Simulated scan of single mutants.
Amino acid sequence: MTVKVGVVLPRPQGDPGEWLSEAVAFEAAGADALWVEHGAKPVLDPLTLAAALAAVTYRSMLVVAVVRDCDEHALETVERLSRGRLVLITGPGESTAEGGRWVPVAVPSGRAAWRETLRQAGERGDHGVLVPADPRLLDLLRNPDDPGGRHDLQLAQG
């Protein structure tokens, strides 16, 4: 069984456009799911953020925590925008989506640690791992087998 990768997107603090750009980058790198970080009294509405994600992404599952008295009409709208990729959870303690358990893990320190994290999750039977959005994770997703000779990062010098 292949362990899926979910990226926990922190709530946007500044320009939501930057937040959306980061989400698109993680999806392009291969993230299986984008989780909108939830918590007490978010500044921006999580369901509206999920709608924005649905508009700029095409493949990743979109996971959002909603309150029980959420507007059904709004939910139906986001469901259509996401083309069936929307998964609702009921709160911060829930870590099941798409029929399996998603386990929070720290951002790995390197490729070997990342492979070990995924191996251990697979052995436990976890459906996926939830990793905080981080530039190191983005690099690991984009270049999972890179031995370290990052020629794409070298600058031309003259």
Rank of each mutant, 00 (worst) to 15 (best):
W35R: 00
L49R: 04
P135L: 09
V8F: 00
W35M: 02
R11A: 08
L47V: 07
D69G: 09
A50I: 09
L88M: 08
G39F: 07
L138E: 13
T117F: 01
D139V: 08
L138R: 09
R111W: 06
L138P: 15
V64H: 04
V24M: 12
E27F: 05
W102M: 03
E27L: 02
Q154M: 13
P144V: 01
S21I: 06
S95Y: 07
A51M: 10
E123M: 12
D145E: 15
P42G: 03
P42H: 05
E79Q: 15
G148H: 05
L86E: 02
L86D: 06
D145Q: 14
P46L: 00
H38E: 06
Q157I: 15
G122F: 13
L53R: 01
R68W: 12
D134Q: 02
I89F: 01
E37D: 14
M61L: 14
R101P: 04
D146E: 14
G128M: 11
L140Q: 05
A33Q: 06
M61P: 00
V36T: 00
F26D: 07
V56F: 11
L86S: 02
V5C: 05
R11M: 07
D32G: 15
D69A: 12
G39W: 11
D146R: 09
E27C: 11
E72D: 09
A50N: 05
S82I: 10
V66E: 05
Q154T: 13
T90W: 04
D134G: 05
A54C: 07
L49M: 10
V78H: 03
P10F: 00
S82E: 12
A28L: 15
L141F: 05
L155F: 13
A50P: 06
W19L: 13
R150I: 00
R124F: 10
V36M: 02
E22S: 14
A28R: 11
A25S: 14
E79S: 13
F26T: 07
E116N: 11
V103W: 04
V7G: 02
G99L: 01
G128N: 09
P144H: 08
V7I: 15
G125V: 07
P147K: 08
H38W: 14
R150H: 14
P147D: 07
L118A: 06
E18L: 14
R68Q: 12
V105Y: 04
A31D: 14
E18S: 10
R142M: 06
M61A: 10
G100W: 07
A50E: 07
T77V: 12
L49Q: 06
L44H: 05
L20H: 10
L49S: 08
E79L: 07
G39E: 04
L20T: 08
V63T: 10
T57M: 02
R11D: 04
Q13W: 05
V78N: 00
K41W: 11
L141V: 12
P42T: 09
P42S: 03
H38M: 06
V66F: 03
Q120H: 12
L153Q: 13
T96L: 01
G100Y: 03
E123V: 15
V66S: 01
S60M: 06
